[in-house]
């Protein structure tokens, strides 16, 4: 790598890490409004969302329906808290609106729905749907010679659903090289650890055997994520091999109080803990930047 390229890459890493930090703060602020919620998951995937919105996606913040935008599909509807934070960071929705999260008449419902929120491409929530819709969008874009790519966010729990594998087969069969899937491998489902609910490993081998360009990375390592997305994006073309990035993430990432708490799908956080969470997030980030 040349000196210039090294510096460009270092700038990208810094920009994404800064964006992820802001996303995490937004998530805590939104979580406090509800007093609970999918805060742990959202903190876990903040780096993934930041890589997507601060680095990879082509979009126009003031024109969410721009025809050539890269699509970002959130299949895991309850992760909406994370995506709202990312959309605010991206300038698609105003930061001030985040405090309406989950309130009556808000554009930011608890589970993400396309009809409510600018930038929300699909209504997720019934898990295992997102990748099937992504296949259709990728096919439709290609048929109309639209160069946009389809980024699709799914969770490891959604690998339980047969429809996800129908779509995995379909995407390969139809050679959807414009499709990039990220899987949040946080190893946790509603009833407990993913491996105790329904074993999905070896996940890498499963995707590879379905014909996908498969990578598995630390989903909280921004540099590693950027490399993985760059590799996937470099291969992206209208007709080719679809790409999947399995991202091992840590629930509550960035807030030791939550990282160490017994893992829960729906995390309860006491009133006096929110400020502690924010302080830990700020201190941890300052420490990591200075280190």
């Amino acid at each position: 790598m040349t000196e210039n390229a090294t510096s460009v890459r270092s700038d990208r890493v810094s920009a994404v890490r800064d964006a992820a930090q802001r996303i995490r703060h937004h998530v805590l602020d939104m979580g406090e409004v509800q007093g609970q919620g999918y805060v742990g998951q959202a903190l876990g995937v903040a780096d993934l969302l930041a890589v997507s919105y601060a680095d990879q996606l082509r979009f126009r913040a003031d024109d969410p329906h721009w025809n050539e935008r890269d699509r970002f599909l959130l299949s895991t509807g309850h992760y909406a808290i994370g995506l709202y934070a990312a959309l605010a960071e991206a300038g698609v929705i105003p930061v001030e609106e985040l405090e309406t999260y989950g309130s009556d008449d808000s554009r930011l419902p608890m589970s993400g729905m396309a009809s409510y929120t600018p930038g929300m491409e699909i209504s997720g929530g019934s898990l295992g749907h997102g990748l099937t819709v992504a296949v259709g969008i990728a096919l439709g874009l290609r048929l109309q010679a639209n160069p946009a790519r389809v980024f699709t966010f799914i969770s490891d729990g959604e690998l339980d659903e047969g429809s996800t594998w129908e779509a995995a087969m379909g995407a390969h069969h139809h050679r959807l090289g414009n499709l990039i899937v990220m899987v949040d491998m946080n190893a946790l489902q509603a009833d407990g650890k993913t491996e105790s609910v329904l074993g999905i490993e070896p996940a890498h081998e499963k995707w590879a055997s379905f014909g996908w360009f498969t990578q598995r990375v630390d989903g909280n390592d921004v540099a590693a994520l950027l490399d993985a997305f760059d590799r996937a994006a470099a291969r992206a073309e209208p007709e080719g091999t679809p790409a999947v990035i399995l991202c091992d993430t840590r629930i509550g990432r960035g807030v030791p109080l939550l990282e160490q708490r017994e893992k829960a799908h729906f995390m309860r956080i006491d009133e006096d803990e929110w400020q502690v969470c924010r302080e830990q997030l700020t201190a941890g980030y300052a420490g990591s930047v200075n280190a």
């Binding site: 099937t132 296949v135 259709g136 874009l141 048929l143 087969m169």
Partner: peptide, 16 residues
């Protein structure tokens, strides 16, 4: 794969 059939149809309609 009927789930894929209708999910795909939805996605195609999303693109017009």
């Amino acid at each position: 794969a009927e789930q894929l059939l209708f999910g795909t149809a939805a996605g195609m309609a999303e693109t017009g």
